[in-house]
Design a protein around this nucleic acid. Structure first.
Lengths: 199, 199
DNA sequence: CCTACCGATCGGTAGG
DNA sequence: CCTACCGATCGGTAGG
């Protein structure tokens, strides 16, 4: 019974967080009220605080859980003993698959993390810069081994990559015929080979 | 005197809007209060309403003024009698130059437009889809003439392009050595030719 | 999970 | 551009 209560309580907390993600995605964190969220769940605003400590705690869960998934995905790719363009491709596919598993949380992760308060915002940004740098390392590796052009601007390349990746939740249609892995492949191909014929 | 009053009044309104853009960029529109804005200008919150009608009117100015600049830039490029990859490159350079002229307003345009109310939000989104479609036409033209691969996903290509373009205000350092036109050239080159050597 | 409620803050107006 | 102020709404707590 104690166990069941705990399980139910956890599960209800998850429900609250998932509904909150939908709300934050549509209206933005700052414009979303706890009364909005309560209404979506069919309860009173005050009742939310049985499950969560504060509005920001929800945002923290969403942002750091996604960050963990991204990190795990990249660590798998880094272990692979393949060339830089293959590694970059797999990193891109992994990132897109993590996003596709929860497009709503991904959009919140991207657009609302700035509303984290200290020290969470700082921690979050450190995780992000670390992640970006690890992709930059893959690109630099590719330049060293001669797979990629020496003339490319590595900062520009990695920023372009992340811009493309991170906006995907805003336009990707989960009901379209294209699966996340294929989307990742195409995106990687476009970035590596370009639009031009005979690339 | 009447003329001078009007000029001063216009200029003060511009100051209010520019300060508001800075505030909205940092805190987001919803989390920015009129009292914050007033403090930045050294006046009382109520005094703002001598210059603007409402908080949202400021957002409308920022979003639609930027949209106009983007449209004008693209219209110039469309007149050019050049190939698709050259036209795409010039469109990218133009877009980046418009953003670079006012990075603050560009960031607000990108991240805060969703807080526009009806019917402004709808009008804004229509302008945006039109702009995107005109870039898509350039890409389709390039596929037809054989400049670009037939295998590319045009929607993905144009979305990747806009993701890259629109995130530029978030990481571009206006005090860096790289000028906007060169940044545009490099971005266009990366997209058209890719990262791979012998592209 | 609810009722009842709190202090703080919001965008905006009246009147000068 | 200011003082004085309004009704609405905010995140959150007490106590059950």
């Amino acid at each position: 019974m104690g166990t069941l209560d705990t399980l139910n309580s956890l599960s209800r907390k998850e429900q609250v967080i998932r509904k909150a993600a939908e709300l934050f995605r549509i209206k933005g964190y700052a414009a979303s009220s706890m009364r909005d969220l309560a209404q979506m769940l069919g309860i009173e605003a005050a009742s939310l605080y049985s499950h969560i400590r504060s509005k920001e705690e929800i945002l923290q869960s969403l942002c750091f859980d996604m960050a963990t998934e991204f990190r795990k995905s990249l660590e798998e790719v880094e272990k692979q003993n393949v060339g830089a363009s293959e590694k970059l491709k797999n990193g891109i596919i992994g990132h897109i698959q993590v996003m596709a598993k929860d497009l709503t949380a991904s959009a919140v992760f991207m657009n609302e993390h700035r509303h984290l308060s200290a020290p969470f915002l700082r921690d979050f940004l450190l995780l992000r810069i670390n992640y970006i740098n690890r992709f930059k390392n893959i690109i630099e590796e590719g330049v060293k081994t001669g797979e990629f052009k020496e003339s490319i601007d590595k900062k520009l390349a990695v920023m372009t990559l992340f811009s493309s990746l991170n906006w995907m939740p805003q336009w990707y249609d989960p009901y379209s015929h294209i699966v996340p892995a294929d989307l990742g492949k195409q995106l990687a191909d476009m970035l590596v080979n370009g639009l031009k014929k005979e690339g």
